[in-house]
Design a protein around this nucleic acid. Structure first.
Lengths: 199, 199
DNA sequence: ATAGCAATCGAACGTTCGGACGCTAAGGTG
DNA sequence: CACCTTAGCGTCCGAACGTTCGATTGCTAT
């Protein structure tokens, strides 16, 4: 084979490793992601793979970053142009459900899976997962707060409580799709969102 | 050491293996459960451990059964005496949330964790997890149906949709407790349930 | 032209995994 | 008492794990 030696080509290699890693980790978890398997599937040596990251934990963190970019592109970007408050909150939920429906990650929501995998083990990966959820929940709470301020939500609606319940709806949909392969799950989730945010 | 050879004592050993297995698997997953670790923690040999089950997969299925017994004892039994329909559905949700709050399993809901761990890998364990969720959801739908028949729920309430949303509420609570260690999560879940089932 | 850097390889490391084997010793049964 | 079953032990195996190391190769700046 022809090894790559320029910095530009090395970045291509790194990208290829991360793409494959996201695919594997989405289906089998961040621990199911093994360096040997990555090397075999990419036609490289194990040391060639790990050389880009230094350790498996650093690879996992990089994979989390890459998955975060995908999530941002697929869920957040399409919604940025929507006016803040209730309209954006509705659009956010729709894109979020659609992201599950389209199977952006073959194993369902990457972060929900990572959360369950790492919530019991202290470490950098767990902290990174928690930080991402905090950021996401913050976004939901912010938009819900704007919607409430604008009077677009029923009186007494607490943004924190609403965000909590929306998380639940999407997690239920994720679960139904992944475990039960229930094709009705996205429709149920949309209906639940509509009950909370109106049509 | 003094090996045990009577059938009764062997059952005690089997019980001890399962108890420890549930504790380990709850915190680290059914795959994180390893025969060598079990043997070390129980002061036995690996062959002494696996001899009771035959294979790791059979052990995992037995652990799932044991966890199911715990769930039944902690969540279902306290509620059996409550009248069917809305009262029982309410009691069910309360016990369900309380089971998360009390930390019956140190890693949160055993089955939610197992579902996320195995939803991507075909096999007997995955099937068993799915069957348990089907049974549980069936119970929720049945009680919701009775409540609707009795006129105790708003007109147009679909039992399937209600069960879906209740699953979401509890999964959100589980997630908030396990990943964020959020002490308010049970209260939020109760509030969400109250919004759906009344006080 | 040459020195240096970085990407990648191949091989080896120590560990851990699930599992298989043969053995011992005790209980239950005739 | 004799026999059979079996709980449990100790040992071993092949595979896979993450990681480390030196060698090789090609690009790039001097």
């Amino acid at each position: 084979m022809s090894p790559r030696h320029s910095a530009a080509e090395a970045m291509q290699t790194r990208d290829a490793i991360l793409d494959r890693s996201v695919a594997i980790a989405s289906a089998e978890g961040l621990e199911g992601l093994t360096i040997g398997r990555l090397a075999a599937e990419l036609g490289m040596s194990k040391s060639g793979v790990i050389g880009h990251f230094g350790s498996k934990e650093a690879l996992q963190l990089a994979v989390l970053d890459r998955a975060g970019e995908v999530f941002r592109t697929e869920v957040w970007e399409p919604v940025r142009a929507t006016p803040p408050g209730l309209p954006r909150l509705r659009a956010l939920c729709e894109e979020w459900i659609s992201y599950l429906e389209r199977g952006v990650f073959p194993g369902g929501c990457f972060f929900v899976a990572a959360a369950h995998e790492f919530d019991g083990r202290p470490g950098a990966v767990r902290d990174a997962v928690e930080a991402r959820f905090d950021a996401w929940r913050g976004r939901l709470v912010k938009e819900a707060g704007r919607a409430a301020e604008a009077g677009d939500l029923p009186d007494g609606t607490e943004p924190e409580q609403l965000a909590f319940e929306l998380m639940g709806v999407v997690m239920a949909a994720n679960h139904a799709v992944q475990l039960h392969r229930d094709p009705q799950a996205p429709a149920r989730a949309r209906r639940a969102v509509r009950a909370k945010l109106g049509a």
